[in-house]
Design a binder for these strands. Structure first.
Length: 568
RNA sequence: CGGGGUGUAGCGCAGCGGCAGCGCGCCUGGUUUGGGACCAGGAGGUCGGCGGUUCAAAUCCGCCCACCCCGACCA
């Protein structure tokens, strides 16, 4: 493609609204343009890159035995009501009405429709297993779109669904998808980490996310420095730092005027956070629940929600706390009655904790479990933190922000039971089909790739997903020799099957070098009078600091060798 | 939904009661040409919208809308 005829321009100034690097670079390179909050036009450069990602995804999904189909984006609301997800999705679901006042939704995902489709086409164990996928536009009215393509309201997703007769079959389908996902990320040049993930309200036995470490990520990846344990912080387990063994001492009340936080106690009494127990009050579907956890730990609300089996969990309001007879800032579960009491298992790790005295401005020393504190339930409800020990191998855990670029999920029979998608087994018994689902956000993958591959000058595209492979820059377009040589090279490169963006614009050398760096195509070829005097041009990989001189007639071969090994 | 912020030319911004501005980009001509060149001339605006105050509103007041950031939320 000749840049003189290309559609789309790079920006000289930094886009004002962009904070994350991928958002900034996508805008500055002219790859995307915002239409509304969380809604973007993909310009030709971005679209080429996205199509390459899609192509890799298709190849790997097909190789895994999955079949591509295409489902609609417009669904009848009734279908979503039949599984209860119209309520569950809430306002995230985009809705509209047709001319006869029927309610439709813009599909955020396709479990319902695909299950309905399979129900009509699968009747026997002989029809199973099946894995179906599509690459299709999803609509989700996110409360807060952010970070350019990181979180948007309209986006393309590869969503796949597996259908099996039994759990073993589901495990095989799941493993096949996991392997396909690993291949996809590897081929895209990305080192995504497969991490244990929360399996959500529907349950199911396994769920994993593929996380790409990046500063602007919305998720926190907990991973082990010594083994391959990795989990989303929502779900991660850890061995909490132990305390030294102590003999229990008698309870002792202390005056603590104005001290309401663990920090206050530390500053004023010299008590380290792990030697305290803090009280947190939650409203679990409206019921106030008392939660006790060691002072150096944070409550993991996802774990707590699963433990309590509640639908909505939030911090209790001050009014609810007061109505329950609790003293915020000086509460403890000592002598607590009439309120469900949950404690993190960290209360077992030590003795002689400082806790609230259940009256204002007083705390108590030397509280011990189980002598003084008897919660109804003790479980792991703490956030794993960097520095905690790995639950598998005891090495220190690390924590890194990361972007979720894929999610795989063993669904079980929730949808097949709701929609009565059954099959007859060998014995003639009717059984619900066992499902899994598997998603990759295509645009988010592009954003994450840029997030992970850039420098102060611009994007450094992984070879396989770069919009073009070669940036061919002619430095002096008014010089007939230069243009002749550049034109010949353009034909040589494209003739050799190399995707080449030919910068034949009437711009200064500096502009072209800067745009080349900004766009981040893997190989840059520079044609200028200086090199031509010796019959050479300069080749340089975007991810290397040194270029090399190459004779004119060997450029295509030289470019190919620079791309080898990483080209998709 | 709570908190913070921003809306003025394609992009980045100044102006904050009295003629609509600057830089970049864009167009024309010329000179340049290996890391965002220079000179001259030019085009481009419902100042987010509606209403109010005023002789006079981009500017003051009110309401609304849009967008960004933090949080909540995110099967």
């Amino acid at each position: 493609m000749r840049m003189s005829a290309f559609f789309g321009k790079t920006l000289r100034e930094e886009p004002a609204e962009a904070e994350t690097s991928s958002h900034r670079l996508l805008l500055k390179s002219g790859m995307i343009r915002q239409v509304a909050s969380g809604v973007y036009t993909y310009m030709p450069l971005a679209w080429r890159s996205l199509r390459k990602i899609e192509s890799i995804i298709r190849q790997e999904m097909d190789a895994a035995g999955s079949h591509e189909l295409r489902m609609p984006a417009l669904h009848p609301l009734e279908l979503w009501e039949s599984t209860g997800r119209a309520d569950a999705m809430g306002q995230t679901l985009f809705g509209l009405r047709d001319r006869r006042d029927r309610s439709l939704v813009m599909a955020p995902t396709h479990e319902e429709v695909v299950t309905q489709t399979v129900k009509a086409n699968v009747h026997s164990y002989r029809d199973l297993p099946q894995i179906l996928y599509q690459i299709q536009t999803k609509f989700r009215d996110e409360p807060r779109p952010r970070g350019g393509l990181i979180r948007v309201r309209e986006f393309d997703m590869k969503d796949a669904y597996s259908f099996d007769a039994d759990e073993e079959g589901l495990d095989r389908s799941y493993d096949a998808m996991v392997q396909a996902y690993r291949n996809i990320y590897r081929r895209c040049g990305l080192n995504a980490v497969m991490a244990e993930a929360d399996s959500g309200a529907i349950g199911g036995k396994d769920s994993h996310e593929f996380l790409l470490p990046a500063e602007s990520g919305e998720d926190l990846l907990i991973h082990c420095s010594g083994c391959d344990y990795a989990a989303n912080a929502e779900r991660a387990e850890s061995v909490k730092p132990p305390l030294e063994h102590e003999e229990p001492l008698p309870l002792e009340e202390i005056h603590t005027p104005g001290m309401k936080t663990i920090e206050d106690l530390g500053v004023h009494l010299g008590i380290p956070a792990p030697k305290t127990l803090k009280a947190v009050f939650y409203a679990c579907d409206g019921e106030v629940v008392f939660v006790t956890i060691r002072g150096d730990l944070e409550v993991n609300e996802i774990k707590l929600t699963r433990l309590l089996g509640c639908r909505e969990l939030r911090l209790a309001s001050p009014e609810e706390v007061e109505a329950a007879g609790l003293v915020a800032g000086s509460a403890s579960s000592i002598g607590l009655e009439g309120i469900r009491s949950i404690a993190d298992d960290s209360i077992r790790t030590g003795a002689n904790f400082v806790v609230g005295a259940n009256r204002p401005d007083y705390h108590v020393r030397n509280a011990c479990y189980p002598r003084d504190i008897q919660p109804d339930v003790i479980a792991d409800i703490a956030m794993a933190q960097a520095g905690h020990a790995c639950p598998r191998c005891d090495s220190p855990l690390q924590a890194d922000r990361a972007i979720e670029v894929g999610h795989v999920f063993k669904l079980g029979t929730f949808y097949s039971e709701s929609l009565e998608a059954t099959y007859l087994d060998r014995d003639g018994a009717q059984k619900p089909i066992i499902m899994g689902c598997y998603g990759i956000g295509v645009g988010r993958l592009l954003a994450a790739a840029i997030e992970q591959n850039n420098d102060e000058k611009g994007i450094v595209f992984p070879d396989a997903i770069a919009p073009y492979q070669v940036y061919l820059a002619a430095l002096n377009v008014d010089d007939p020799e230069v243009m002749q040589a550049a034109g010949d090279l353009y034909r040589q490169l494209t003739g050799a099957g190399l995707e080449t963006l030919f910068d034949d614009r009437e711009e200064s050398a500096g502009v072209k070098f800067n745009d080349a760096d900004l766009l981040g195509l893997p190989v840059r070829v520079v044609v200028g009078p200086r090199g031509l005097r010796g019959g050479t041009v300069e080749l340089r990989r975007r991810d290397e600091s040194e270029g090399r001189s190459v004779e004119l007639d060997g450029v295509a071969d030289a470019v190919r060798s620079l791309l080898e090994g990483t080209a998709g």
